[in-house]
């Protein structure tokens, strides 16, 4: 696989692992909010369901279908924000967006992202950035509705 070897910077093992076995896919029984996001260019889909109490995301379900980048990002996102506050989730979203834009992140911001740092390589493949951000746009919508 020598020729494809330089893909390793994009497809880190952690990404493929989340793609193969996505986390938090159990649908919530009665979610407070539910948001679907679709990337019209490729048809990739992500559904985010949230349950909150007192500003904390104590229930999250993330499902969908699509490429390894969109689905691993969705899975890692669910893992990251589960049990955290709405504020934390918003902050993580901003940090992840900055990562995709190629902006320099502070230590704190990187720490906020956990496993998602594995998606760093995506920024070198501009057409795939939308894939990585799909789940986050659903989360952002969902968070806004939680707050409203």
């Amino acid at each position: 696989m020598q020729d494809l070897g330089d893909l390793d910077s994009l497809y880190r093992e952690l990404i493929l692992d989340h793609h193969r076995s996505p986390r938090n896919t159990e649908p919530l029984i009665s979610p407070d909010v539910e948001v679907d996001a679709v990337n019209p260019f490729c048809g990739d889909e992500v559904k985010v369901q949230l349950k909150t109490s007192g500003g904390t995301l104590n229930g999250i379900s993330v499902t969908g279908r699509g490429c390894s980048i969109s689905q691993s990002s969705a899975s890692m996102m669910g893992e990251l924000v589960k049990g955290r506050s709405v504020e934390d989730a918003m902050r993580a979203r901003r940090a992840f967006q900055a990562l995709m834009k190629g902006e320099a992140l502070t230590e704190d911001q990187l720490a906020d992202l956990g496993d998602l740092e594995a998606l760093q390589g995506v920024k070198r493949y501009p057409v795939r950035i939308k894939c990585a951000l799909l789940a986050w746009s659903a989360l952002e919508d969902a968070l806004k509705r939680v707050r409203a």
């Binding site: 494809l4 893909l7 994009l10 497809y11 490729c42 048809g43 390894s68 980048i69 795939r128 894939c131």
Partner: peptide, 24 residues
């Protein structure tokens, strides 16, 4: 997934298209 195939083939200089091809 087709997208991942497309990205891999592009590394090999092969241009194909992936997606719904405007026929969802």
């Amino acid at each position: 997934h087709p997208h991942d195939l497309g990205t891999a083939l592009d590394r090999l200089g092969i241009a194909i298209r992936t997606g719904h091809h405007c026929a969802m």
